[in-house]
Design a protein around this nucleic acid. Structure first.
Length: 272
DNA sequence: AGTACGCCCTGGCCGC
DNA sequence: TGCGGCCAGGGCGTAC
């Protein structure tokens, strides 16, 4: 369940290690990994010899810029990017589906137990458009007004927050946590939010994502950073996976419902 | 346009 | 102790 904060932590871990480095060997051993575009052999061949000029993030996607083309990586539910440097580093196992070797013998391992993740190439200039990624919630352009524009239509606010074509990078954990911090019920119709509620939600989204990054991500199932370490943000969760436990604000038991086929956690007293 | 549902996949957990 | 069955869930495809 890597969401925006987890992907951003991995990106920051990797930037000083791979930026400017040349890819000198590639092995992709899982066919599903490149299912969106190309075969494993084609993707591997296309990466060979290129330098990673920049490592960017958009929503939950990582962009490895190689020049005309860029390598797009999505970690799905259980994807990990592990940096293996020298002795005592990580070794590929049965869940390792790709290995990128850089000059100097350092390796980047792509590991993914459930194989929901993806790795493929797109032309750099049009990659974002092709992926159809919505507004970036930590960018200056994400204002209460921008959130208001996104909140048109009759869907419930939680479903909307999960729609990557509207707002990029928010997944199930941070959607529930942001709505709790804003005091808004996940079932509310997005278009029914008043200006004051939109301001609160806007602030809550930014604060919860920034706190997630500061605590190096939420390790609920098996999220790990690029060095294999878990994040600490799960200890700060106020509703996610806390159903039945007392609300930390008012003591009311946290409720769990299904919304758009996703487990949804909220406090029936604090969230209206 | 929206919603519902199935699919992909595997480890972990529950009940017997 | 062992095993079958169910569940989580991001994103996509299909049906309504």
């Amino acid at each position: 369940m890597p969401e925006l904060p987890e992907v951003e932590v991995i990106r920051r871990d990797l930037v000083p290690r791979i930026q400017g480095r040349r890819i000198c060997e590639v092995s992709i051993t899982e066919r599903r990994l490149t299912r969106r575009r190309g075969t494993p052999a084609e993707v591997a061949a296309a990466l060979l010899g290129y330098r990673v000029t920049a490592l960017r993030r958009r929503g939950k996607f990582l962009f490895f810029d190689l020049g005309q083309e860029c390598l797009i990586v999505h970690l799905g539910m259980t994807g990990q990017l592990l940096w293996a440097e020298g002795r005592g580093g990580f070794e590929p196992d049965e869940h390792t589906h790709a290995v990128l070797s850089f000059e100097g013998g350092r390796r980047l391992l792509y590991r993914d137990i459930r194989k929901f993740g993806e790795m493929f190439l797109l032309p750099t200039a049009s990659a974002e458009r092709t992926l159809g990624i919505g507004i970036e919630p930590l960018d200056p352009g994400f204002t209460p007004r921008a959130l208001h524009r996104v909140c048109q239509g009759k869907r419930c606010i939680k479903t909307l927050l999960l729609d990557q074509t509207r707002i990029a990078g928010i997944g199930n954990i941070y959607a529930d946590e942001a709505l709790f911090r804003a005091g808004i019920r996940p079932t509310r119709r997005a278009s029914s939010l008043r200006p004051e509620e939109l301001r609160r939600l806007h602030g809550a989204i930014r604060r919860v994502l920034q706190a997630g990054i500061r605590h190096r991500g939420s390790s609920i199932s098996n999220y790990r950073d690029a060095c294999g370490r878990p994040g600490r943000f799960a200890a700060q969760h106020r509703v996610y996976h806390r159903h039945g436990l007392p609300c930390l604000t008012c003591g009311t038991p946290i409720r769990r419902i299904l919304l758009g086929q996703r487990g949804t956690h909220y406090c029936p007293a604090c969230q209206r």
